[in-house]
Amino acid sequence: MKVERIQFERTGGFAGIRFAADFKPEDLPDEQSKELFDLLDDLDFNELPEQMMDENTPDSFTYSITVKTKRKSHTVVTGDASAPEKMQELLQLLNRIARNQMRKQ
């Protein structure tokens, strides 16, 4: 199923500064959208639980990722200590995309 839209938000952290991105993958450079799809596939994103939150970890980031297709929208909320190891690369990529969007605004 084709991914139509991705929303990402990073909140909390020592600085408490919000990073966010809302984009269509088709608007990304080809290389970056391929990397993104590969990571989502690898994680089997739609099967991930909606909540994978840190407990008792002051200053860690909270991440919210929503992946939308024509028929479905799936949101995962997670934190630094509870995100699976495999998810770290995805979080880093979304972070870079968010930062680029914020810079352009």
Partner: peptide, 11 residues
């Protein structure tokens, strides 16, 4: 991590 702009206490 790489490019991790944060510090935290993990309990």
């Amino acid at each position: 991590q790489k490019g991790y702009d944060n510090a935290f206490w993990d309990g």
